[in-house]
């Protein structure tokens, strides 16, 4: 799942896959703006067949937190 999340972040933000790590976030990926953030949320939901709450959406601005939140939803 980690690999799939890294791929989606790379695809949506338009940055090379090797540059995306667990430490990547809206702070250090310049293309990660609010519109791309929405695309990211929609892509994650579609790919993993999950539904994110508004609170979770706001927290999803780091790759490591994406992994935690998506992991919890997929596992449950």
């Amino acid at each position: 799942m980690e690999q799939k999340i890294l791929e989606i972040v790379s695809q949506i933000m338009g940055v090379p896959l090797q540059s995306v790590t667990l430490a990547s976030s809206a702070e250090n990926i310049p293309t990660w703006d609010s519109l791309k953030h929405m695309n990211l949320v929609l892509a994650l939901e579609q790919t993993f067949d999950i539904h994110l709450s508004e609170e979770q959406i706001v927290e999803l601005t780091r790759v490591d937190s994406i992994l935690t939140i998506v992991g919890k939803l997929v596992g449950s």
């Binding site: 989606i8 695809q11 949506i12 892509a43 579609q46």
Partner: peptide, 12 residues
């Protein structure tokens, strides 16, 4: 294709 796949396809 999923939304993420399409984004990738369009870039490549």
């Amino acid at each position: 294709l999923s939304f993420a796949d399409l984004s990738k396809w369009l870039r490549e």
